[in-house]
Design a binder for these strands. Structure first.
Lengths: 216, 216
DNA sequence: AAACATTTGTCCGTATGTATA
DNA sequence: ATATACATACGGACAAATGTT
């Protein structure tokens, strides 16, 4: 009997991780509202675990900026206002730009093919008006590039910022721009030429242009 | 009897925070060696607290990349090798560059004066060969700029990367370059002109040039 | 292969601290 | 101002999981 290969990642899911993932999801999609007070005992019973894994998950969410913990007082879901986009995007653009620059020297043909396929699907989703799928594909596109860059700091920080950005998208119902399709193609062309400076520049624009439009 | 005003920030420091700060310090200065196994019960008795705050502190250190946790197995201090500098600096340079760009539009005269004073002291320390003081002043210089930028994401991420960089400096006994003095001055001049593009460019160079020299 | 020893993950009780009446 | 209620921070114990003999 053939054994499924997926067991190569036998990282057992601890209660803490389950709680973390669930709470993050709820905060991002708005199930738990901004400003809402979170009491660990309530969450614990609601999620069927004890308070310890809940507390640990909350600490991680605090580091990522999803909740605010006041030691000895209370912990609340952080508020969001429209200016938050302008706080998240510039660092994200800078880091993604570095990722693109590093990736340009390391990328292989297989990944380039993957980027082409993903951008095809992305284009279809955008034109079909399926913004949920489009956003997911957009993230896959960018994530593939970050992974090529082989930098754990970039990976971790971009992932955190992406999660925060996703939360804002949910709240403001932001839809992916058609212009992204073409920018992705330009990025792929730059990768094929292993042109890191152009790749970095395009990536930065890809994030910052929507921000500028937003404020005009 | 006049009451000290500092009580306006009465954030009581929890056991978790004390443990976190202590462990981070020990890892950075090498008191705890890379690859060393950390058992929470040992640390708990050594630090005079229970396992809970130790575990919580370790989780935060794991997020910052100082320790590696394998669920159900063990927790170890992360290894460091000479390539790590090339992993930390590029993201740090990118974020500091964004901070400089944002700060250029927001900076006031008082902060500019502070930067001038700090760079004076920095120059003295460098020329006196007091690299410990020099590094501390260099960090103060950069931190002041980051605070002006008013961006919590930048603040948090740069602080994490700085801590990792500091650890590498300890291991490799890196000393601040004399060229930094002049670059700091150029940066201040750019700030006085509120020239954000130049400020961003200088800041990036300030971090990346030492890295290039390192690999030639 | 199986039982052991160790360490982690989790649970829950208690006390300290904060906010409210 | 005191007292009351409540949530958090911490402690200590049990149980599951790992690797070891």
């Amino acid at each position: 009997m053939p054994i499924p290969k997926d067991f190569s990642t036998p990282v057992r899911l601890t209660a803490k991780e389950r709680v973390f993932t669930q709470l993050q999801q709820w905060i991002i999609d708005g199930t738990i509202h901004p400003g809402e007070k979170l009491t660990d005992s309530e969450l614990a019973t609601a999620l069927g675990v004890s308070r310890t894994p809940v507390r640990e998950a909350l600490q991680l969410l605090a580091v990522q900026g999803f909740v605010e913990m006041q030691p000895g007082k209370e912990t609340r879901v952080t508020m969001v206002d429209k200016e938050d986009v302008s706080k998240v995007i510039p660092p994200l653009a800078a880091l993604e730009s570095v990722a693109a620059e590093l990736a340009a020297s390391l990328i292989d043909e297989k990944t380039i093919s993957f980027l082409k396929e993903t951008n095809e699907k992305f284009a279809q989703a955008v034109l079909a008006g399926d913004s949920y799928t489009a956003l997911k594909l957009d993230e896959q596109f960018h994530q593939a590039i970050v992974e090529v860059a082989q930098n754990p700091y970039l990976l971790s920080m971009i992932s955190t910022l992406q999660a925060n950005a996703r939360r804002l998208y949910y709240f403001k119902a932001i839809v992916p721009a058609e212009s992204s399709i073409e920018q992705h193609n330009e990025l792929i062309l730059a990768f094929e030429r292993r042109d890191k400076d152009t790749a970095a520049a395009i990536m930065k624009k890809n994030f910052l242009r929507p921000l500028e439009e937003f404020y005009n």
